[in-house]
Computed example of a mutant assay.
Amino acid sequence: MNTLQFIDSITGRLAWPLAAVTLGIIFRRSVGQLLGRVQKLKWRDGEAELVLCP
């Protein structure tokens, strides 16, 4: 494996985690406010109940 192949491999493996972390940082406040309003959450059924007026 030469240097260019190594760089390509590392870039391909880090693209999605880096994008997820970047989006998490950008939308940190919005997600935090939304999670603070969750009253009930079901994991497997994918159901969440939110309070609309805090």
Rank of each mutant, 00 (worst) to 15 (best):
M1P: 05
M1N: 05
N2D: 15
N2A: 06
N2T: 10
T3S: 13
T3A: 14
T3I: 13
T3Q: 12
L4P: 03
Q5M: 08
Q5S: 06
F6E: 11
F6M: 10
F6G: 02
I7R: 07
I7G: 05
I7Y: 02
I7K: 08
D8N: 10
D8F: 11
S9T: 15
S9L: 14
I10D: 04
G12S: 06
R13H: 12
R13C: 10
R13T: 12
L14Y: 05
L14E: 00
L14G: 02
A15W: 12
W16L: 15
P17A: 08
P17G: 06
P17W: 06
A19V: 15
A19I: 15
A20R: 07
A20C: 08
V21W: 08
V21P: 04
T22C: 10
T22H: 00
G24A: 01
G24T: 06
G24K: 04
G24D: 03
I25H: 03
I26M: 01
F27H: 06
F27T: 02
F27V: 00
R29Y: 03
R29F: 05
S30A: 12
V31T: 02
V31W: 02
G32A: 00
G32E: 02
Q33L: 04
Q33N: 06
L34E: 06
L34Y: 07
L35K: 13
G36M: 04
G36H: 02
G36Y: 03
R37E: 00
R37G: 00
R37W: 01
V38P: 01
V38H: 02
Q39F: 10
K40R: 12
K40W: 14
K42R: 14
K42V: 05
K42Q: 09
K42Y: 14
W43T: 11
W43N: 11
R44Y: 09
R44W: 14
R44F: 13
R44Q: 11
D45S: 13
G46V: 01
G46D: 00
E47P: 04
E47D: 12
A48Y: 02
A48I: 05
A48D: 03
A48H: 00
E49L: 10
E49D: 05
V51M: 11
V51A: 11
L52S: 09
L52N: 10
C53H: 10
C53F: 11
C53N: 14
C53G: 09
P54K: 07
P54D: 05
P54Y: 07
P54Q: 01
P54G: 12
P54V: 07
